[in-house]
Design a protein around this nucleic acid. Sequence first.
DNA 1: GGAAGCATGTAAGATGTTACATGATTAC
DNA 2: GTAATCATGTAACATCTTACATGCTTCC
Lengths: 207, 207
Amino acid sequence: MVGIKLRTSSYAILGLLSIASMSGYDLFQAVERSVGRFWPVSKSQVYAELARLEPAGLVQGTDVHQQGLPDKRVFRLTEAGEEALDSWLGSSEPGEPQFRVPFLLKTLFGHRRPPGDTAGLLRAAGDEAAAQAGQYREFLELLDSVPDSAYARVTVLFGLRVAEAVASWAEEAQALLPERAHRIDPRREPRLATEMFRAAPAVRQLG
Amino acid sequence: MVGIKLRTSSYAILGLLSIASMSGYDLFQAVERSVGRFWPVSKSQVYAELARLEPAGLVQGTDVHQQGLPDKRVFRLTEAGEEALDSWLGSSEPGEPQFRVPFLLKTLFGHRRPPGDTAGLLRAAGDEAAAQAGQYREFLELLDSVPDSAYARVTVLFGLRVAEAVASWAEEAQALLPERAHRIDPRREPRLATEMFRAAPAVRQLG
DNA sequence: GGAAGCATGTAAGATGTTACATGATTAC
DNA sequence: GTAATCATGTAACATCTTACATGCTTCC
């Protein structure tokens, strides 16, 4: 049992193993079909995590011989692994969500584009969100017939509600776009622009 | 003029400079008060980007001597920089949004916690989202008096709508939580769990 | 006298991605 | 025969974060 630093991705792995024992291969598939939506873990990360978690005594792999398929190593949570997972789950700090939304950058810099272009961008973003919402709805229906899936349903519902919000924002936003281009030339009137920045609330304390 | 690879963070910098010429210091402040909400760029990244963009001829720095304050280097967009920015803006590919939401991990693994705990987590997450929504509302009011800020308003509106959706999801979700703990033991019934994963739609094509 | 703001960076490392490598078996 | 699935990894590198370093000025 070695003391290692557990990151959120480690807990994602531990959590999945608390639902079913799995090989690295299965784990990656499971990630892509579950937590990958809101906490991506790449294939090589999965294997890297397992290679860290096992010597630390949090998971335990067992070689399984298969006929007709390659041998594999199936990992299960150890008691120490359960404790580590539960102690992380125990704190009700939600943890800071991280968002990276490239199309908002393009939206914010709309002053440099012909007005119609930004409307097109919003339409495209809205369409994608609507398609996503559809997927989530289907998934929810499917979960209705799965026993003990209440927490999964609530999680999927998050994706649905956010996707719906983005889709309806895209509609709402198109009506608010200016019809004429307003070009901002930073060499002519920098004062106004910097003042706008100063007026805006900062993401966090500035150091 | 050197050909360099521009990342999304580069365009964030170029875009801000298309609103006002600024020093690295000012740029970081501007990031934290604007694009940082949906595209974070750290202080050292800002300076690193400027050091890349200038030799490539996309921005041009000018030394400005100040009395009572340290000297600074103010950067402006060059014509090549404007072209690079506009050509990126020109494509209406929205770009793939990235989300990382730790509390959804904790929600999904609720089967390991006493039932009340997950409700507490949702309450905390909902409260934070509601507080955020309030901030966005204030910011929107402030922008009402700023001329030519239509694109900024639309961008802030996105944050507001998403925050509202998260807050109302947190309310809705609490009613859907199971009252009794259902423990899933991966050593007893792994079949059900893995089948659930298989039924779920994958984030993207699996390779 | 001390804290906070202005100003610019470096250095180290955390974290994660993509592509590559390998090889057997099964389904079409 | 060819593609896909199962299975496990390595190697290279892209990207970004945190903490540290420095020094002057203004405000309390």
